[in-house]
Design a protein around this nucleic acid. Structure first.
Lengths: 109, 109
DNA sequence: CGGTTCCGTTAGTTGACACTTACGTTAGTG
DNA sequence: CACTAACGTAAGTGTCAACTAACGGAACCG
């Protein structure tokens, strides 16, 4: 839990997570996207893996990384512990700055 | 958004947030709970206020702080941006490590 | 086997940050 | 106006973390 929030606090690590959210990528592909060296990305990947936010798969000489959404469940539980479903209403008020699907109906609305 | 996650990444600041989640407290009351000096708490309160996670109210010579749940809406939106409602199922799977409603049913075994 | 690719790991440095001590400020009291 | 209480702020220190450069290792190819 502590390691998860600390891993997310770094903007670069959140960018990396966005990259491997949908498709798995190698460390080199990730490093090519940013203006940092490959070892720096490798260390970030180590922190994210330690926090359980992604998984690693070896493929020959490459290592492919993919996001692990279960790692964020702790953060979700942290939010619920404080404010319960009060947030579920507030998040929609904050979504006019996002471009999500209009999310017309909810299961309990 | 960036400041919010950074503010939450510190364990002490999360403890402070827990204290002012339900009732508002003064800086001295908060500092008395932990083994840190009052200026340290004051700086943490400044970070939390900067991130929009709490509000300040002056009462004579004291300053009372209270949590501001709207500040967490950004974090909730961040989670949704990545995994949508996939997390809403996973968070229940991860709750067996918490002491929430025991939820002892296995519909799939 | 030697050479290449892709990658993690190890120093080593720079900057951020959490903390303490000392000081400045505002509000209330006699 | 002193005097006190409650607090923020400034200055300084130690520690951790993010980064780069150099090195080491596993998989593939000739």
């Amino acid at each position: 839990m502590d390691a998860t929030l600390r891993a997310l606090s770094d903007p670069r690590r959140r960018q990396i997570l966005r990259l491997v959210a949908d498709s798995e990528r190698s460390a080199g592909e990730i490093a090519a996207q940013f203006d940092v060296t490959r070892p720096a990305v490798s260390q970030h990947l180590g922190v994210l893996k330690e926090a359980g936010l992604l998984v690693e798969r070896r493929d020959g000489t490459r290592r492919l990384y993919r996001a692990r959404p279960e790692g964020l469940a702790e953060v979700q539980a942290f939010l619920d512990e404080f404010w319960g479903d009060r947030l579920e209403r507030l998040k929609y008020a904050a979504e006019h700055e996002q471009r999500r699907r209009d999310a017309r109906n909810r299961k309990r609305s």
